Amino acid sequence: MNEFIEVPKAKELLKGLAISPKNTQVTLSQALGRFTASPVLAPMNVPSFDNSGMDGYAFSWEDLGESRKLAQVVQAGANPDFNLEKGAAVRIFTGAPIPKGADTVVQQEWVDVVGDTVFFELAKLTQGMNVRKAGSQCQEGELILNSGTLITPGTIGLLASLGIEQVGVFDAPKVSVILTGDEILEIGQTLQPGQIYNANGPALMAYLSQLGIDKVEVLKVRDEKSEVSRVIGEALESSGIVLLTGGISVGDYDFVKGSLEENGVQQLFYKVKQKPGKPIFAGIKGEKLVFALPGNPASVLTCFIQYVKPCLLRLLGNPNAWTSPVYYPIAADFNKKAPLTFFLKAKLENNRAVVLPAQESFNLLSFGEADGILEIPEMQEHLEEGSLVAFYPW
Rank of each mutant, 00 (worst) to 15 (best):
L383T: 06
Q25C: 05
C311H: 07
A282V: 03
A37F: 07
S249D: 12
C303E: 01
S387D: 15
E234C: 06
G65N: 11
A89M: 05
T152V: 06
N130W: 09
G201L: 13
A203D: 09
T323L: 09
N198S: 14
S209M: 05
G372Q: 11
L301H: 03
P193S: 10
E262W: 02
A88H: 12
I156A: 00
F281Q: 01
Q274N: 12
A172N: 04
F362H: 14
D214E: 14
S387L: 01
E287W: 02
I187G: 03
G258S: 10
A160H: 11
I151Y: 02
G157Y: 06
G251K: 04
I184L: 12
Y307S: 02
N83F: 13
V40G: 02
G16Q: 10
E186L: 14
L145S: 00
I373H: 13
G251S: 11
K257P: 01
G56K: 01
W110V: 07
S226V: 13
P329H: 08
Q274I: 06
P339S: 04
K275M: 12
S161Q: 08
R314Q: 15
K86N: 14
L243W: 00
P393N: 08
V90M: 05
A31V: 07
A102Q: 00
Q137G: 00
T149V: 08
K22N: 10
T24G: 05
V118Q: 00
S229N: 05
E378T: 02
L356I: 03
G163S: 02
K275S: 08
A71Y: 14
P279T: 06
Q266F: 07
A292H: 00
T36M: 10
P297K: 07
V46N: 02
L312E: 00
P99V: 06
K285Y: 04
S366T: 10
I248G: 01
V73S: 09
I241P: 04
G56R: 02
Q30D: 15
W110M: 14
E227S: 14
I280H: 05
K220W: 13
G277P: 04
